[in-house]
């Protein structure tokens, strides 16, 4: 089974719109939305939820005022400033380390695990999808991403799908690291701006750090052709394959408003062809076919 993860470094470059468009082109694939912080893929996929499961995160300290002797040990031990002088825990600051729990001489601190969000297995018009919703202001997004990626692989296995398409989060931190580990290849969506090229370089370094092959495509390329050129040169310098260019096209926003992918909106356009060509390049790329075999199933009986 192969998994491609679409990331970008910088937010808002078109990851989700392109992921949805790829989903419309892919055959026998399973979708995964790993941007659990601000998941948007479902707005285009309108998934029908088949299974819903709570995501339990780490514990959070709760001081029982009836048992608390006010000795101040917890406050002294807490490195996150989460306990105030009235011995109430600030849940937002609490890191969930439990040090106060273990050191309280009165055993007055409970450490209940809390529900941090939920995750779903759904059906969409383009096949099954695994997605999640992290609670507001919650931690453990990396853990939730790892969980849903494990589930999506299991689901793909079960359904006999040979490709997972994962919509990744922005940035280079914990949810991104959790999204790319063990992936077959990354598609890095870049916009031709000073921020876009700056953030792409960091994400390319991240991919190299975790040894996942990357490929780059430039979205809205015609907003700055010189910058597009520079991005492609930089990609080549970093030994990252260049997939192609997608034009700035209001059809992306219009189709989004209607909850559709680019391919389900209006007459065939030049932009659709660009995306089709990029998808063909992804699927036939050496990173996606490490042995030079296009489709394992049809080759190996």
């Amino acid at each position: 089974m192969r998994e491609i993860v679409i990331i970008s470094g910088k937010g808002g470059t078109g990851k989700t719109s392109l992921t949805a468009a790829f989903a419309a082109l892919a055959k026998n694939s399973v979708l995964c939305d790993a941007d659990v912080d601000a998941a948007d893929l479902h707005l285009l996929m309108q998934p029908e939820i088949r299974q819903q499961t709570d995501f339990m995160g780490g514990g959070v300290a709760v001081i029982n005022p009836d048992l608390c002797a006010g000795c101040g040990t917890c406050m002294e031990m807490c490195r996150f400033g989460a306990i105030n002088d009235r011995f109430v825990v600030d849940v937002i600051r609490c890191e969930g380390c439990g040090v106060c729990v273990d050191f309280c001489p009165e055993k007055a601190i409970d450490f209940p695990t809390k529900r941090c969000g939920e995750w779903y297995i759904s059906d969409t018009r383009f096949g099954p999808m695994v997605h999640a919703r992290l609670g507001i202001a919650e931690e453990n997004s990396g853990k939730l991403v790892s969980l849903i990626r494990k589930e999506v692989r299991r689901l793909a296995e079960e359904r006999g799908a040979d490709l997972v398409i994962t919509d990744g989060p922005p940035g280079i931190g914990c949810p991104v690291i959790a999204s790319i580990g063990g992936a077959t290849a990354l598609v890095i969506v870049v916009e031709p701006t000073v921020s876009g090229i700056h953030d792409m370089e960091r994400v390319v370094e991240l991919a190299a750090h975790f040894r996942v092959p990357g490929m780059v495509c430039v979205n809205k390329w015609d907003l700055n052709p010189e910058m597009t050129e520079a991005i492609e040169q930089l990609a080549i310098k970093h030994h990252v394959a260049v997939l192609g260019r997608v034009s700035f096209d209001p059809a992306f926003t219009r189709s989004m408003v209607e909850g559709k992918t680019l391919f389900e909106y209006g007459e065939p356009t030049a932009t659709q062809q660009q995306v089709r060509d990029i998808w063909a390049k992804i699927i036939s790329s050496p990173s996606m076919n490490p042995l030079g075999i296009m489709d394992f199933k049809s080759t190996i009986q």
């Binding site: 937010g11 507001i136 931690e139 989060p169 940035g171 931190g173 909850g259």
Partner: peptide
């Protein structure tokens, strides 16, 4: 601030006097 709604954003907003939110008028 960074994008998202989890711990990095909280770290960047907590204790501020005002949060200015920037959005675009699209479903996302």
């Amino acid at each position: 601030a960074p994008p998202g709604t989890s711990c990095p954003v909280i770290a960047a907003m907590n204790g501020a006097d005002f949060v200015l939110m920037v959005t675009e008028p699209t479903p996302f």
